[in-house]
């Protein structure tokens, strides 16, 4: 299982496939203050990414891979440009 749900946290593990998006969406719909942990994630299918972007949960840990992390941050990081 590439997605692990713990209370209001979801842990992404390894490769998160397209079929997980549905479950993720359902979970996010009923979990208002969701938190995401990418620490063990190496890739996620963009369907999941869309769900996350739409739900904008807070991200606790970004992935270890710097390039991957940068991709995700460009999509999910809510910090406004300070300038």
């Amino acid at each position: 299982m590439s997605l692990e749900f713990k209370k209001n946290q979801v842990h992404f593990k390894d490769m998160v496939g397209v079929e997980d998006a549905e479950e993720l969406l359902e979970w996010l719909q009923k979990t208002p203050a969701a938190k995401v942990d990418f620490s063990a994630c190496t890739h996620l299918h963009p369907a999941n990414l869309q769900v996350l972007m739409a739900a904008s949960p807070s991200i606790m840990v970004w992935p270890a891979d710097a390039a991957f992390s940068a991709w995700l941050q460009s999509a999910l990081d809510q910090h406004e440009d300070p300038y």
């Binding site: 996010l28 719909q29 739409a54 999509a75």
Partner: peptide
């Protein structure tokens, strides 16, 4: 690289996860 979205997100309940808008 960066990812953006083509249109504003709808409410979660109406979201179609499998329609790519990225």
């Amino acid at each position: 690289g960066s990812i953006t979205v083509r249109q504003p997100w709808p409410a979660l309940a109406e979201l179609d996860a499998y329609r790519c808008v990225l």
